[in-house]
Amino acid sequence: MKLTLKVWRQTSAKSRGKLVEYAAPDVSPDMSFLEMLDVVNEGLIAKGEEPIAFDHDCREGICGACSLMIDGEAHGPENLTTTCQLHMRKFNDGDTITIEPFRARAFPVIKDLVVDRAPFDRIIAAGGYVSVSTGSAPDGNAIPIPKDDAETAMDAAQCIGCGACVAACKNASAALFVSAKIAHLATLPQGRVEREARALSMLAQADHEGFGGCTNTNACEAACPKGISVSFIAQANREYLRAVVKKA
């Protein structure tokens, strides 16, 4: 396959970036998208040009490090697929592909396609946990949990923290990310003890980081490589309301 790439290049957080065009003349349909970028980078280095910086690590769709807006879509055109698992057989010979970083005020660009997603860590630190110190747990089977609840919790808990939901949202809202954690823990008895404080502090932290509000466009669910449902946003809203009412 012969492709043309338009890639966002930006040397640092403070510099201005621009789209730069590169030819990718020898792409195999069996390559992953990131393997295609590897090949382009090898060619750039050979020509004495600095390679394109992008975040990636596990390359099996679970670490959440990879990102990229590919032709305007977070993680590209394939549903339920991270960029690292997107394969070139999904594109056509002769295509021009535009590659940009995830864009959100709360995710500043560090270099080229690399953005800073540390706000997500701070949102978890604000309350996305059960306060149980090592050693104080009862037997694992002490509290039976209905299978359906465990499955629902898992549906929410499988968020990989990639930020696609934010990138896809016109408001750059982190609602899906935040609510997935609130819902995961509120669905389980272990997490209910701190449910009110958690909902209030995590949502407050998200606002503080500069993420926008949710206006129910559902773009986040469509972009989420793990298919996290927007119904968790509704659940988190109920958790929030519950907390506000209880507090008052």
């Binding site: 050693g135 747990a137 694992g140 499955e151 272990q190």
Partner: peptide, 20 residues
Amino acid sequence: AIIDQCVAQGVPFARDYGGF
């Protein structure tokens, strides 16, 4: 004890229909 600790943290392990 690892399993106990992880369950207490809210790790959603697979369960059977009785909830165990």
